[in-house]
Nucleic acid binder design. Structure first.
Lengths: 148, 148
DNA sequence: ATAATTAGGTAGGCTACCTAATTATATGGA
DNA sequence: TCCATATAATTAGGTAGCCTACCTAATTAT
């Protein structure tokens, strides 16, 4: 039996390779899907629509990266940019009807996919996994900061 | 409290973002480090050195991708290509002394890093995590195959 | 007024992959 | 023995998803 740290390294590496599979639908790329979900989530039940900066924070990518994805989604007619009236530097990102429809479908499919995973793992294990992933995330985030 | 599937999705997404941080040292890229480790591991205690095809399988990337990384490592003097005598189509990849030294250091640092993680989590949780990551991996692999 | 900051955008580059086509070699069967 | 096919690796070119460096416009603080 290999040592624990090596087995952990291997399991993590293997798991992280998954990020490049799946998550494409309706001809949208993974990054676009994540953006649409963040926009819908950010706008839910709020009177003010989400901004580029908020999206950058939510998705943990830089604002130029947000801009690029929004450009694609705007050209495809899924979102619109609306100038804020109070602060004219701010762009608020709004889903079009078409964008809203597709994002609703995306949420449904994601819900389905991850519900299946929860069924597969069981509720207890799913909760442990969330907890463990958070712990590892904070461990590596701390480590990354320490090395700056 | 949000629903379990959504929390799981979020935890997984967040965790997978980690793959783009860390893992660079000695001016080597993540892909190059992974390649060096695979070469050293593949050559350990074997009379025949590892091939491009073996590396492709081990790292789960295509053989053209292996070739590219090997080119960089060869130009930097970390590895050498050696023609197989029995089958001259085959290239065997060998670490140079310089390559071996650096890979030994890489293994040490990885060992240290993941030992720290194991210490942080504790042995029991580390084992659970490995098990859970494997389960999720097999779940999504199955799903990806099903959709082909 | 002016300095500093904030929000967002543009241009260009990088990593880590990929697919398709090509070259070189090996091998099983007519 | 020759050929068709298979296999190993490489070459050529592309893509997704980020990044940095820098810019303008607008706001806030002095």
């Amino acid at each position: 039996m290999e040592e624990l740290p090596h087995r952990l390294l291997h399991a993590i590496r293997q798991f992280q390779k998954l990020s490049h599979t799946g998550h494409t639908m309706h001809g949208l790329k993974r990054s676009e899907i994540m953006m649409l979900m963040a926009i819908k989530k950010g706008n839910q039940g709020k009177e003010k629509h989400i901004t580029v900066t908020d999206l950058s924070t939510a998705l943990k990518i830089t604002s130029p990266s947000v801009t690029q994805v929004i450009n694609v989604l705007e050209n495809s007619g899924y979102v619109e940019r609306v100038n804020d009236q109070q602060d004219r530097r701010i762009m608020r990102i709004v889903l079009t009807d078409k964008g809203n429809d597709i994002t609703t479908q995306i949420f449904q499919r994601m819900e389905e996919k991850y519900s299946n995973l929860v069924d597969f793992l069981g509720e207890e294990k799913s909760n442990s996994l969330i907890e463990l992933l958070d712990e590892v995330y904070s461990f590596f985030s701390k480590e990354a900061n320490r090395k700056e």
